[in-house]
Design a binder for these strands. Structure first.
Length: 232
DNA sequence: GCGACAG
DNA sequence: ATCTTGTCGC
């Protein structure tokens, strides 16, 4: 897979913010039938120990068999600082590299991070969706933007994530009595479908299976040879 | 001006 | 993201 929209990544912070405002205009929130989704992509990233580069892991998980069908890892130089709201500029260069290795294009991608639940409406999940023009949504482990009431403690409970009087995502309890995850649309999908998919991909862990697997895979970054056994 | 602040 | 032990609970 290759990005359809290409732009510079070595930008100053003000330039990056302006680019986000432009790209935010291209974000599409549209209905997507959950029954048409079988191959679910999962993406997660992590910096190298020496902080000189960033690794990105991509997995493809079959929601029918509930098994991993493909996985890859890649890296790219780390050039951008961590600034809340500008995570895309640190991680997407590595994501572009793993995407190049994907053989079977997934029906949708779940990205570790936020979608439109972002100060300018374009978190990393939305940014990836826009430049690759594929369905994506974000599943973050903590809050970046918005307000919410804690959802009930039972698995499957949800509570709307709000900002400026609008619903920008859902806070979802994927496991009973465990901290919830923050789901927001990225591109070419609707919140209801993203929410239902998150719940149907979860159960064993706090994170939905695709993201959980990508998380475990990227954690093996520096030793990428002994991973196969431990992952399957 | 004072907090908040994905990974 | 990462530095970190034991411990509580399903």
């Amino acid at each position: 897979m290759q990005p359809l929209i290409e732009h510079k990544w070595d930008l100053s912070i003000p330039e990056a913010i302006n680019l986000q405002k432009e790209l935010a205009l291209k974000v599409q929130v549209s209905p997507l039938d959950i029954n048409s989704l079988r191959y679910i992509g999962g993406i997660d990233c992590a910096p190298s120990t020496d902080m000189s580069k960033y690794f990105a892991a991509a997995v493809i998980w079959d929601i029918h068999t509930r098994e991993l069908v493909e996985y890859h890892i890649a890296d790219a130089p780390l050039t951008f600082p961590y600034v809340p709201g500008l995570l895309s500029f640190r991680e997407i260069p590595a994501v572009i590299e793993v995407m190049k290795k994907i053989n079977k294009k997934p029906d949708i991608f779940i990205v570790d991070g936020h979608g439109i639940a972002h100060p300018r409406g374009i978190g990393i999940a939305a940014h990836i969706g826009v430049i690759f023009d594929v369905p994506t949504f974000g599943c973050g482990k903590s809050l970046l933007y918005g307000n919410y009431q804690d959802p009930a403690h039972e698995r499957g409970s949800t509570s709307p994530l709000m900002a400026k009087g609008k619903v920008i995502g859902n806070v979802i309890r994927t496991r009973s009595n465990v901290r919830p995850v923050f789901v927001s649309v990225g591109h070419k999908v609707d919140l209801k479908t993203a929410t239902e998919l998150t719940i149907s991909c979860s159960g064993r862990f706090r994170l939905p299976e695709p993201t959980h697997l990508a998380d475990k895979l990227v954690a093996q970054k520096e030793n990428k040879s002994v991973i196969i056994n431990k992952l399957l």
